[in-house]
């Protein structure tokens, strides 16, 4: 898909919105979708720094939810809270709750390894392991006990195809992943995340280190992935949020200023600060 086609689709969304019939249809689909994540009065501190304040957000199934906001407003902190990676920082303390599919992720009986198997993550900088492409993608399956070579082969092929990079690497699966370009590495990382067959994929500025062509490829890929996965993406690129997401949350200084359907956030935001931010007046 080219970027012009992406634009076309965004225009189509706007057309949808103004057409009354279509709007009711869209409302119906939204009612049908279920929340995968619900943050309930969620607070987080780094030592004394109250980094997230009373976050209440629902992310829906099979949607792309975008988190935007100026640098340092807590986007990464929040997305890393969803798979509890934020707890790797020892001084972190949380209050309130995050519910994943009707279960609190902070529940004592819920192990983080289990959560992270269902909630995969793609990071800002492509971070493949210094291993072969094959071993990178097979990593998750192996960690979860898959030994059978045939099964692993299938997992690797399916995931690489899912990440739209199979054709580029199928002849050199045993080469080190470090030999690939940044954009290819990031798609390897997406394939690696897909290989554990997650339910939700978290992406923290997945294209910020990439060139425009790789960025387009990954945005196109996300449109495809949305059919099978729920995606939460942090981006400081507002055009990207507008292009790809269904809903957008605007974070500012640790709290959610506004959360709505993406076209509402960009076309008729309710809060002045949201309007200032999306129109590029600050941030």
């Amino acid at each position: 898909m080219t970027s012009s086609k992406v634009k076309e689709e965004k225009n189509m969304n706007t057309v949808y919105d103004t057409a009354v019939q279509d709007r009711t249809e869209e409302n119906r689909t939204i009612e049908q979708t279920q929340a995968v994540f619900q943050a309930k009065d969620f607070n987080l501190w780094y030592g004394n720094n109250h980094a997230l304040q009373n976050i209440n957000l629902d992310f829906n199934e099979n949607e792309i939810s975008a988190i935007i906001g100026p640098s340092g407003c807590g986007k990464s902190t929040f997305i890393k809270s969803l798979n509890r990676m934020v707890e790797l920082v020892p001084i972190v303390r949380t209050e309130g709750d995050i519910v994943y599919r009707d279960q609190s992720i902070f529940d004592k009986s819920y192990t983080v390894e289990d959560l992270r198997t269902k909630v995969g993550m793609v990071f800002q900088k492509p971070n493949p392991f210094p291993k072969s492409i094959y071993d990178n993608v097979a990593y998750g399956a192996r960690v979860h006990g898959v030994r059978n070579k045939k099964v692993l082969d299938q997992v690797v092929e399916k995931s690489l195809k899912g990440a739209a990079i199979w054709d580029e690497v199928k002849d050199r699966l045993n080469d080190n992943a470090y030999g690939l370009s940044g954009g290819q590495q990031q798609r390897i990382c997406i394939a690696r995340a897909l290989a554990i067959e997650p339910d939700v994929i978290l992406m923290d500025e997945p294209t910020s280190a990439l060139d425009p062509i790789s960025t387009t490829k990954i945005e196109d890929l996300m449109h495809e992935l949305k059919k099978d996965y729920s995606i939460v993406i942090v981006t400081h690129n507002m055009q990207q949020a507008a292009r790809i997401s269904d809903r957008t949350a605007f974070f500012y200084q640790g709290y959610v200023v506004e959360y709505d359907k993406t076209n509402v956030i960009f076309d008729k935001p309710k809060d002045q600060r949201t309007e200032d931010y999306v129109s590029g007046r600050f941030g």
Partner: peptide, 22 residues
């Protein structure tokens, strides 16, 4: 690099698996 530790832990690997495999 801590980024590849995070990659491993982010996939549900335990600390020990991360140590031995990465």
């Amino acid at each position: 690099p801590s980024t590849i530790r995070e990659a491993s832990i982010g996939m549900g690997a335990t600390k020990w698996q991360t140590i031995t495999r990465v």
